[in-house]
């Protein structure tokens, strides 16, 4: 009687699941405790932080709106060009890699693995690091910036694409195969129409991210509004810094609204 009650007791997780969960919790706590205990904080810097913030705020006000034209506007336009070109270029490079990484579109495991490695590697190297590379190659300027963001986007675009392709419906591909379509034809006429919604959402999402990213490229000399930001900070012109930050804020919000509107209508 007692034994059957014991056997019928409902337990949510198997012992293995419980051990795995416990391991994750333990790992999280251990990581945080380790980080808190060993992180290097310089207390002298912390004491005057409030004073520094107040000082910065005071220097940022009033905002130097007069500097917007012709100081900021060209840099802003350049930033938008960088973001748009980088998105287009990133799509051109990321989509083929995405198809190569998808197990159903490319049935060669070693090609999949190689493509996946490319996706992870391009994503792990941050935009700024890519920008450093390309500035060394092509010299400072927006070209290096556009290439940097484009290469960094490959990973994200390709990953989203390969997931979209792997989730696509087998039926129409089999129909194409039965009709004798080549692999290229299967991709163009079979997979592509199915991943078209993915394409639009990835393109818009990435464009949105790229505008934000292109605002920092100037720190390493790769063009855009970041150049203006960097020189304003170096020259301690905090009233211009606040103007640039405000400009970035407004542009990012505008782009978010545009993306939302397009998403609502197209997808």
């Amino acid at each position: 009687m007692n034994a059957t009650a014991e056997m019928n007791r409902w337990i949510r997780f198997t012992p293995a699941q419980r051990v795995a969960r416990f391991a994750v919790y333990l790992g999280m706590v251990a990581a945080i405790v380790w980080a808190l205990k060993t992180i290097e904080v310089i207390p002298e810097f912390l004491y005057d932080a409030p004073a520094q913030v107040v000082d910065m705020g005071a220097r940022m006000w009033p905002i130097d709106f007069a500097h917007f034209w012709p100081g900021i506007w060209p840099a802003l336009v350049e930033t938008l060009h960088i973001a748009a070109m980088a998105t287009i270029l990133g799509l051109c490079m990321g989509i083929p890699v995405g198809f190569l990484a998808a197990r159903n579109a490319t049935p060669f495991p070693w090609v999949n693995h190689a493509a996946r490695f490319v996706l992870v590697a391009t994503r792990s190297i941050s935009t700024l690091l890519w920008a450093l590379f390309f500035v060394a190659m092509f010299g400072p300027g927006p070209l290096a910036g556009a290439l940097a963001i484009a290469f960094h986007s490959i990973g994200f675009i390709g990953k989203m694409f390969s997931e979209g392709v792997e989730e696509s419906n087998r039926g129409s591909i089999e129909a194409l195969q039965a009709a004798g379509a080549t692999r290229m034809q299967q991709i163009v006429m079979g997979y592509w129409p199915m991943v078209l919604p993915t394409f639009w959402s990835v393109a818009l999402f990435r464009w949105d991210i790229n505008v934000r990213e292109s605002a920092i490229l100037g720190l390493v000399g790769a063009g855009g509004i970041g150049v203006a930001l960097n020189s304003a900070i170096d020259l301690l012109q905090w009233d211009r810094v606040s103007l640039i930050l405000l400009t970035i804020f407004v542009v990012v919000i505008l782009i978010e609204i545009i993306v939302m509107q397009i998403r609502r209508r197209v997808i």
Binding site: I39, E40, V41, I42, F45, L46, A49, Q52, V53, M56
Partner: peptide, 9 residues
């Protein structure tokens, strides 16, 4: 960095 100085903080 301006507020709390250089470093991990």
């Amino acid at each position: 960095v301006k507020a709390v100085g250089f470093g991990a903080m």
